[in-house]
Each structure stands twice: as structure tokens, then as C-alpha cells.
Design a binder for these strands. Sequence first.
DNA 1: CTCGTGACTCCCG
DNA 2: TCGGGAGCCACGA
Length: 104
Amino acid sequence: MKKEDSFHQRAIRAIKKIPRGKIATYGLIAAAAGSPRAARQVVRILHSSSDKYNLPWHRVINRDGKISLPPARGYELQKALLEDEGIVFSADDKIDFDHFLWSP
DNA sequence: CTCGTGACTCCCG
DNA sequence: TCGGGAGCCACGA
């Protein structure tokens, strides 16, 4: 398809493919981009290019099905956005992967 | 140019 | 069972 095989591009593409009402994990995005252990890079990309590339950063959470953001970082905002898309949180603020995890 | 950091994840002891 | 260390890549100073 495209020649640009940079992790950056692939990760962004993968993130943009996440459908509304679903969520993905950092590791999942990283794996989809070519490096299952490059979750940190996904984080960095979200920080640097979420607004720039219009990425649904709120649909990206950690492997526990929980939001990794500290409350001071926008945790509440992310939770609100997810709930607005129909995502349901458990009592532990966890998301049910069986229903909401996006699969590439 | 080099160095440090980061909303993570996996493996090993 | 739980804790610590290593790995991945990009970006800012």
C-alpha cells in the first residue's frame, strides 16, 4: 500500500482505524505497527501527534483494561469520552475486553 | 550531534 | 505471588 514503513506512521494508521465504541491497548497498537514491545512509542505518539493527526487517544488504554492516565492528566476526560461512545466501565474502572476490545 | 524521558509490556528470579 | 529489569522508538532540549 504505502512505502512509508515507519513505526510512527503505522501506529497512527492503526489508531485511526479503531472504530467508535471500541478500545485498544498500547501493546495492541504497537503489535499492529510491527513491534509488540513498542508500547511506549505509541504513548509518545499520542502525546506528540494526537491532536495533530486527530487520533482517538481516549480509545487507547493499558493491558489491564484500565486507563493509565493519572487523574491530573485527563483520566476523567478519557473516561467521559469513552462512556459517551458506549463503553462501560466496571466497578474497578476497568473495561470489559470481551465486548469492547478492538481487534485488528 | 547526544542524552533523557515516556499515558507500556513481557520475561525472569 | 510479586518485584525488578530489559526492550522498543520517537521527540524535545
